[in-house]
Amino acid sequence: MNGVSTFFRVTGGIVSLFVETIYWCKSFWSNADKIMAQLLVIGYQTLPVGALIALFSGGVLALQAGPTLAQFGVEENVGGLVGLSLVKEIGPVMAAILVAGRVGSAMAAELASMSVYEEIDALKTMDINPVRFLVMPRFIATVLALPTLVIYMDVIGWFGGAIVSYINPEVHVTFSVYYRNLADLVDFTAFVNGLIKAAIFGVIISIVSCYVGLKTKGGPREIGTSVTKAVVLSFVLVLVFDYYVTRILLFLNLD
């Protein structure tokens, strides 16, 4: 019974924070500097690692799929396979996991620390709404940054796949063949599909991380517990929502 009530309390809290954050998005322009600062932090924390992950993810996709395709004599399709896999599924999920691990954890830690050290209470006493001041800029920055990061990781991942497809003697597909096939198969709809998923993952990660951070009570030890909680909950929700969003996109003929 305790678990059930906790589930409903947390779900209600997350939904309520989401609705309040959407309400405060009306203050977008007056908080543009805070949003830009968050975007810079997200970029700084994710771009180098994202490039590395994407390069090797594209490479491993080509390494796994290339020889199998070659067995059937259709190795020139490796570009499309890598391209579509990255754009529709691997790019958004990898980017979400990266952002949850690096950015979401930092958000949860920062807000948890602010809760524990009475900074959130200090904001309230100054009649500054913590959702407007702290959550909304992080929410908007994450929702904008994640699709951008996906595009960036897709492009690097394609390149990783192209390198491996070319240098692997079992596949040996030239760059021009690889990219021509990729351009034939990856259409605008597939691209939009990935970006929609990324934006939804951005909503999940920012709201969950901020919720867990703001609800932290106790001492410094609870800050670490909150970070773990935020990252695990974000991972789980990203993967669960990935399935349902894919179902909806398939239903809407966007997949």
């Binding site: 602010m114 050290y117 009475e118 900074e119 209470d121 200090a122 006493t125 100054m126 009649d127 500054i128 001041f133």
Partner: peptide, 29 residues
């Protein structure tokens, strides 16, 4: 009515300078 409070932990924002901490209320409002 405006009520100010000085917290036990001071509750200063660590990412802001002293000046930005003190100016926060004036700027936000």
């Amino acid at each position: 009515h405006i009520i100010g409070m000085v917290f036990q932990s001071s509750a200063l924002f660590n990412s802001f300078s002293v000046e930005d901490n003190v100016a926060l209320y004036l700027r936000e409002h």
